[in-house]
C-alpha cells in the first residue's frame, strides 16, 4: 500500500514538474522545475529499493548539474526566446509524427510485452545497497567503469578549453 502511494505521488510529481520543464517560458523556472522532477524520480528510486541511486540522483543531479544550469542562466542573463519565424516550418509535422509514433509504440510495447518473473524478489534483498552496487561495478562492469572515467577526463579537458577560449574572447588570460 505504501509503495502504491509513494508511486502515485512520485509519478504525479515527476510528470508535473517535467511538464513544467518543457512548458515554462522562463529558463530559470524551468531549471527549478527540473529540480522538482529529479527529486520525484529520486523518490521513485527509493520506492524501488535503490537508496544509493536515489542519493546520487539528489547529490549529483539536483545538487551539481542543475546548479550549473542556474549559474549559466544567471551568467547569460535574461534573453528573450525567438518566437517569430521557425525555420523548421512544416517539417515540424514530421517531428510530431515521430513523437506520436514513439509514444504509441512505447505504450504498445509496454502493454503487450511480458517482463520477467511473475513474482518479483522480496523487498528484503540488499540489491540496492552500496556494497552490492560496488561489487557489481568492480566485478562485472569494470570496462564501463573505466569508460566513464575516460569520458569524465575528456569532459574536464573540453570544459577547460571552452572556458579558456571564452575568457580570452573577453580579453582575459
Amino acid at each position: 500500500m505504501g509503495e502504491k502511494v509513494t508511486f502515485a505521488v512520485a509519478a504525479i510529481g515527476a510528470l508535473g514538474f517535467g511538464a513544467g520543464v518543457v512548458f515554462f517560458k522562463d529558463a530559470f523556472r524551468a531549471a527549478v522545475s527540473l529540480i522538482g522532477a529529479l527529486l520525484a524520480v529520486a523518490l521513485l528510486f527509493i520506492a524501488l529499493l535503490a537508496p544509493f541511486a536515489a542519493a546520487v540522483q539528489v547529490i549529483v543531479y539536483a545538487g551539481a548539474i542543475v546548479v550549473m544550469f542556474l549559474f549559466v542562466i544567471a551568467y547569460l542573463g535574461e534573453r528573450g526566446e525567438i518566437t517569430s519565424f521557425d525555420r523548421l516550418d512544416r517539417w515540424q509535422v514530421v517531428g510530431w509524427l515521430g513523437v506520436l509514433g514513439l509514444g504509441g509504440l512505447g505504450a504498445v510495447a509496454v502493454l503487450a510485452s511480458d517482463f520477467g518473473p511473475d513474482s518479483p524478489a522480496p523487498a528484503t534483498t540488499g540489491v540496492g545497497s552500496p556494497q552490492a552496487i560496488g561489487e557489481a561495478m568492480l566485478a562485472n562492469h569494470i570496462v564501463a567503469l573505466q569508460a566513464i572515467a575516460v569520458i569524465m577526463l575528456i569532459a574536464t579537458v573540453g570544459a577547460v578549453i571552452l572556458a579558456k577560449s571564452a575568457v580570452q574572447g573577453e580579453g582575459g588570460r
Binding site: F52, P120, A121, V127
Partner: peptide, 14 residues
C-alpha cells in the same frame, strides 16, 4: 532501476 528491482540484480543500478 525498475528492471533492477524486478530481476533483483544490481547491474541496472550500475
Amino acid at each position: 532501476i525498475g528492471f533492477s528491482r524486478l530481476w533483483d540484480d544490481p547491474s541496472g543500478q550500475v
